[in-house]
Computed example of a mutant assay.
Amino acid sequence: MLIGVPKEIKNHEYRVGLTPAAVKEFIAHGHDVIVQTNAGTSIGFSDDQYISAGAQMIASPEEIFARADMIVKVKEPQPNECKMLRKGQTLYTYLHLAPDPVQTELLIASGATCIAYETVTDARGGLPLLAPMSEVAGRMSIQAGAHHLEKAQGGSGTLLGGVPGVAPAEVLVIGGGVVGTQAAKMARGMGADVTILDRSIPRLRELDDIFGGTVKTVYSTVDAIEQYSKQADLVIGAVLIPGAAAPKLLTREHLKNMKDGAVVVDVAIDQGGCFETSKATTHQEPTYVVDGVVHYCVANMPGGVARTSTMALNNATLPFGLALANKGPKQAMLENPHLLNGLNVHEGKVTYQAVSDALGYEYVAPEVALQA
């Protein structure tokens, strides 16, 4: 199979779909790889490293899309990239389709087979290709929040960990999954006073054990969100419904009761955001203010630490990518139900229930679509 790796073109996105080490793995399995010139240069992966790994460097993204059997990316394809996809071609990347009707329409029109990292599952019910970026984003959310609490950044001028004689900041984490756990670890490590809200009692028990009682765990209700957001200096939105649009848990009314200069970081923004006032921002212009509350809603947070993120992502995506190349996409997915869960669009059909529900398309079961 010919694998194509175009350079990412989203604002301040420096990650790359395959590292030179991952390219070498595909080559070792008998495949060919073409990589766009300078695709990884900005994060220390030179063209010479790719060539040494066995890749052919291509200057034109159009040529990569025209030639490759499978396109491996990081972020969702932008409109001009979607228009270069074709029937019989496989796209393997993050998609986040539920809040993105334009991309969904273009992928349907392309006829391509589109596999979303974020909906591939594992035997434990986890999301193994989303987890590494969730870990990065969770940790980054606290770095970003602490920075934007500084007065010069529009925040209240509060130091997250306080100092002797001055109380630390109050951090509210909504959602106790991978993002929320990593955010809480970072916030607690910096000395903040941390509260985690979640709707799963078993998960709250696990979090209590993980943190040894050093963070507050609270069952998430409308009242709890209202109460704890009032006193929070920093709120982290860490809620995920796999493949679906995120629920709006922090409302405009909540903001009106929050502290002036408080900061909210919406890590769920890729799925539409879990705050009512969220709108996607970029690393170039990461924040805006609503009712005195600073909003950080960067849609590709892990891109800010692109080298770490790329290596962590490749560790997770490589085994599935090799299966797709070695067996062919259809056989690989029909043999592996967890990889099959990653199929979101196939030859003009929407094959992921949450996407069809969110955008009003007819749902076709992925195994049915593949065997049609």
Score class of each variant (00 low, 15 high):
residue 210 I to T: 10
residue 234 L to H: 04
residue 228 Y to S: 09
residue 243 G to K: 12
residue 216 K to L: 01
residue 198 D to T: 09
residue 197 L to E: 05
residue 188 R to D: 00
residue 186 M to P: 01
residue 235 V to Q: 14
residue 232 A to R: 05
residue 229 S to H: 07
residue 198 D to S: 14
residue 201 I to H: 11
residue 206 E to F: 10
residue 203 R to A: 03
residue 217 T to C: 12
residue 222 V to W: 04
residue 231 Q to F: 01
residue 237 G to F: 07
residue 241 I to H: 09
residue 220 S to N: 11
residue 189 G to V: 09
residue 204 L to G: 11
residue 192 A to H: 06
residue 192 A to G: 10
residue 238 A to I: 12
residue 243 G to Q: 09
residue 191 G to A: 11
residue 203 R to P: 00
residue 215 V to D: 00
residue 222 V to H: 11
residue 213 G to V: 11
residue 238 A to L: 05
residue 204 L to Q: 04
residue 222 V to C: 08
residue 200 S to D: 02
residue 212 G to K: 02
residue 223 D to R: 13
residue 223 D to Y: 11
residue 195 T to L: 04
residue 228 Y to L: 14
residue 243 G to S: 11
residue 210 I to C: 00
residue 190 M to V: 12
residue 230 K to F: 04
residue 201 I to D: 00
residue 223 D to M: 05
residue 196 I to L: 14
residue 185 K to P: 00
residue 217 T to L: 02
residue 219 Y to D: 02
residue 236 I to G: 06
residue 202 P to M: 06
residue 204 L to I: 10
residue 236 I to F: 12
residue 193 D to Q: 15
residue 240 L to W: 01
residue 243 G to D: 06
residue 211 F to W: 06
residue 215 V to I: 15
residue 229 S to P: 04
residue 242 P to H: 10
residue 221 T to S: 15
